[in-house]
Amino acid sequence: MEIPYDLLINALVAGLLLGAFYAAVTVGISISFGILDIVNIAHPGFIILGSYIAYIVNTRLGVDPILVSIVMLPVFYMFGAIVYQVYYHSFEKRGEDPLRGLAFFFGLLFVTEVALVIVFGVDYRYVQAPYIGPSLKFGMVDLPLRMLVPAVVALVLFLALQLFLTRTFMGRAIMGVAQDQLALRLVAASPTRIKRSAFAISMATAAVAGALLIIIQPVEPSVGREYIGRVFAICVLGGLGSIPGTLVGAMMLGVIESFTSTFYGPSWAPAVAFGVLLLVLAFRPAGLFGR
């Protein structure tokens, strides 16, 4: 088969932009699952919640969705802290088997989705912003702003988190929680408090990811399910607990998906992420940048 050159380049660029966005969606799971070992499968559900908040404020008041999400950061942070508190008291402290923790988050995911269905119905919702529609053209490469703006915001968010985790005391403490809780106690830092902040931060990223999602595509409550596979595939592909790995994994998945939908049709795209996940689990469970 002769593959047209410009189609290839465009699929690659679209895949990279998509990948940057996926990185923003996944970074929350990277922190909660990768670093804290909390399998928060409800994260995509909270991202959809973020999308709907951006949607409501955008349609009622005409505020830019990204701005809305930045204002919502503290609210999601608080919400994350509460969820962690419940999780800690019900499961971690009691040393309950992880089974119940998983069921807890699965239940949260489901409740969020069904509650959104009951309130908003299953219609697709979208937002208005000046950068939705126009696109930049560089020769034969097409750069839709609808993809470019979220990709840039995602990279900024990613960079900020990476700097926070490697340069500040709190960030290093979070990375340390994954490795040695006793050592943390010895330097007079409470692992529980650190984990709570980390989980809250991971939840806060859902506000931004949600706004980016609804800029990229129209959203309905069950869209979150498609992202469960993607985020875990990226997380495992990049290597658990590795933030740079997440970015690389996200970019790879974005490109693979983009090629799949360009050359085989979009109806195959959802299976790509899960196929990648199953392959990685089978052959290299530690991922590319695994510890």
Partner: peptide
Amino acid sequence: GAFFAIGTLALAVVLQTL
């Protein structure tokens, strides 16, 4: 155990796409 859980979720989507 968590990987098995996520893997089963993955299986559902792969089969549904097929």
